[in-house]
Design a binder for these strands. Sequence first.
RNA 1: GCGAUUGUAGCUCAGUUGGUUAGAGCACCGGUUUGUGGUACCGGGGGUCGUGGGUUCAAGUCCCAUCAGUCGCCCCA
Length: 416
Amino acid sequence: MAGLQPVKGTYDLLPKERALHRHVSETARSICERYGFNEVITPIFEFSEVFSRTLGETSDVVTKEMFSFVTKGDDQITLRPEGTAGICRSFISNGLQQETPVKHFYYGPMFRYERPQKGRQRQFHQVGIELIGVDSPQADIEVVAAGYHFLKELGFADVVTLELNSLGDSESRNAYREKLVAYLSPFEDRLSEDSKKRLVTNPLRILDSKDEGDREIVKDAPLLGECLNETSQAFYDEVKRGLDMLGVPYVENPRLVRGLDYYCHTAFEFTTNTLGAQGTVLAGGRYDGLIKMMGGPQVPGVGWASGVERLALMLGEDKVKLPRPIMVIPAANDHQDEAFLVANRLRQEGYIVEQGYSGNFKKRLNKANKLNAFVAIIVGMSECNEGEVMFRDLNTGDQVQVSVDGLPALIERAKG
RNA sequence: GCGAUUGUAGCUCAGUUGGUUAGAGCACCGGUUUGUGGUACCGGGGGUCGUGGGUUCAAGUCCCAUCAGUCGCCCCA
């Protein structure tokens, strides 16, 4: 036990920051619902194969970032590093091919064993959507549009760039892979250590290497676009036409490659330069072979995931305010019970009500300010009749006597 | 896994070439004559100076190690 501190890369979300996160995830949920995606929750851990088989045995996520453990029953378990694999497992487990198209929205914690830094922690949160069972570009267009709409709703339309590419179908990708390896092999000695390995395991990933030397070599490499067969090219063109039609701005990035193995055709990434080293804020693509690869039926899918922490960082702390309460204050300590009853009554009516727990009148009003209360209700003033209380608007300082029954009307007016 | 940088109160920090019982602001709690707020004044709690060694008559200050945070590389949301 490493003392009273959170485990590396984890942290506590206190009310203020949690409100910010909730704003992000609720915005996502509400926008995605407009596109017909409804929320599901899948377990935060799965059998390890769910991830290791699907994400690619050589991917970084699988080789060094999985949080795994063995249960008492000798099951190999992994805390989910991303959402898609679990959704697809759930699709198969629940026999949802009967109900396609399936449109799921999700929100929840993800886990990756990485060095924490700005916009990156070991337990973080993602929102995401998956559209399963539609093989036409309509699905890709709708999914990307929903992502754009979500970011726009948060106010990021101008600080975010949609980068788009097509990885083509497997025929196109295999053809390209050969061509790329043929081009790169003569330069093998000059490639970075990582890229030398990638030449064998996953040459496409060399394309977006940030190593200076690699970039120099890759600059003149053949592009994936040149190898797209007719179907793949037509698919890509249709996606672009749809985005143009809906007014979703994008730039093509022929070197964009997704880190996970299951993607094909559409690959996209919304990036920003406002977050330091972590530029990607929402990313996804099409994964037609994934469900079959997991042992399910041949059903296509497309989706994205977005990092809640990163978006919350972009929003800034003061963007979301906690709700303002009503403060009920006893004029003197022997009116404590009466005050409690008034508070109780207002809570039944649906209002957010706080009580000061100690201190004299003055202290409690002070407390009301600290809680950002907009109304104080003072119980037990000598000038009040039976069943009456003092209503004080804390914005204006105006104060009137009123029956308890008359409170809601005054509260509504004070809300402004 | 690698690199850079930081570590004194809940938070932001001060602490002089090593020298008594380690300070400030903010925050928190209480008070300033019976019952009216964001101010002002008074008082209070809270720190084994990240941890462990070492040098020294003397270490928050110097040396070593270790742990943790932050940022970056790799990779990703």
